[in-house]
């Protein structure tokens, strides 16, 4: 019973980007996933990539608020990591196509379908952002991600006033939106 409430707290922490919670989960589960991947033709770098991707799946799940605690976090991470690694192995044709189950796994296919969609949105935005170049990327990051005001941006990017910065932001934003929606529409 006690572990159940602990796990719930940890999940809440992940959803809130609480570092301590993330660190705890990382410490408790990374080696297990690493062992599985290394035992199946992977390197510890692969393990890091796969584990962090699984953590992102967990994050999305925790944030969506629909996470039913019908299994332990470790079971979930292991199951997701295992699926992701199987997929990767298939892509690379490095086999084996079956991974021996060290612990019980739960079906996570639905979650991964949702994740795939979210992931392609993310990659889209990332591609568009990097396609922008500087200073546009930093400027938009400052405004939309770090929530800086136009005045602060004008100051740190060396624009003479907030209006100039706003002008520049508009131009950058239009370019970004075009890049983003070009990909976006191509996909649907």
């Amino acid at each position: 019973m006690k572990t159940g409430s602990n796990e719930r707290l940890l999940l809440k922490g992940v959803a809130e980007n609480n570092r301590k919670a993330i660190e705890t989960i990382y410490l408790d589960n990374f080696r297990m996933v690493q062992t599985m991947i290394v035992a199946n033709n992977g390197s510890s770098d692969d393990a890091k990539d796969i584990f962090q991707e699984a953590m992102i799946v967990l994050l999305e799940k925790a944030r969506s608020g629909t996470f039913e605690l019908n299994c332990q976090i470790s079971t979930y991470l292991y199951s997701v990591g295992r699926r992701l690694w199987l997929k990767k192995l298939n892509q690379l044709q490095r086999g084996p196509v079956e991974i021996e189950q060290a612990i019980e796994v739960i079906p996570v296919e639905d979650d991964l379908d949702i994740f795939e969609k979210q992931d392609s949105d993310f990659q889209n935005m990332e591609k568009a952002m990097y396609g922008l170049g500087e200073p546009c990327r930093s400027l938009l990051e400052a405004y939309y991600l770090r929530k800086k005001t136009m005045l602060e941006i004008a100051d740190s990017f060396g624009y003479t006033n907030a209006d100039n910065a706003k002008n520049q932001k508009y131009k950058c934003l239009m370019r970004l939106k075009k890049l983003f929606f070009d990909h976006y529409k191509n996909e649907d």
């Binding site: 980007n17 570092r19 993330i22 660190e23 990382y26 410490l27 990374f30 890091k48 962090q52 953590m55 992102i56 994050l59 944030r63 979210q118 949105d121 993310f122 889209n124 935005m125 990332e126 952002m129 939309y144 991600l145 939106k177 983003f180 929606f181």
Partner: peptide, 25 residues
């Protein structure tokens, strides 16, 4: 667009923390 942007930002932030935690551990 703004919705995707927010999601993008959140995930970027999370990835940074993950990277950081990994490095530290």
């Amino acid at each position: 667009f703004l919705n995707r942007m927010n999601k993008y930002g959140e995930r970027k932030q999370f990835q940074r923390v993950l990277e950081d935690v990994h490095g530290k551990l």
